[in-house]
Simulated scan of single mutants.
Amino acid sequence: MTITTTEAPAPARTRTRPRRTGGKGGQALRTVGVYAVAVLLGLGVWQLVAVKYGPSLVASPSQTLSAARELAADGTLGNSVIASSRRILIGWGLGVVVGAPVGLLIGQIRIVRLLLEPYTEFFRFIPPVAFVTLAVVWLGIGESSKVVLIFYTAVFIVTLNTSAGVMAVDESKLRAAASLGASRRQILQRVVLPSTVPYILTGARLAMGNSFLTIVSAEIVAAQVGLGSLIWTSRNYGRIDWVFVGIITLGVLGLVYDRILRVIATRVLHKYGAKV
Rank of each mutant, 00 (worst) to 15 (best):
T4C: 08
E7D: 13
A8F: 11
P9N: 10
P11G: 10
R19Y: 01
G25C: 05
G25R: 09
G26T: 12
L29C: 04
G33D: 00
G33N: 07
L41C: 09
W46P: 04
A50T: 05
V51Y: 02
S56A: 09
S60L: 14
P61S: 00
S66F: 08
A73P: 04
G75Y: 12
T76A: 05
V81H: 01
A83N: 07
S85C: 08
S85M: 13
R87L: 09
I88M: 14
I88H: 07
G91M: 08
G91Q: 03
G95A: 01
V96E: 13
G99I: 06
Q108F: 00
V112W: 06
R113M: 12
L116W: 04
F122P: 07
F125D: 11
V129G: 01
V137H: 02
L139S: 07
G140C: 07
G142Y: 12
K146Y: 03
V147L: 11
Y152A: 08
T159K: 02
T162E: 06
V166H: 01
A168M: 00
E171R: 14
S183R: 05
S183G: 03
L188N: 09
T196V: 15
I200W: 01
A204Q: 12
R205E: 11
A207T: 04
A207Q: 09
M208T: 04
S211A: 14
S211N: 02
T214A: 10
I215H: 06
I220F: 15
A222F: 03
A223V: 11
A223K: 06
I231N: 01
N236L: 15
V243T: 02
I247R: 02
I248Y: 07
I248P: 03
L253P: 02
G273W: 15
A274K: 08
A274Q: 02
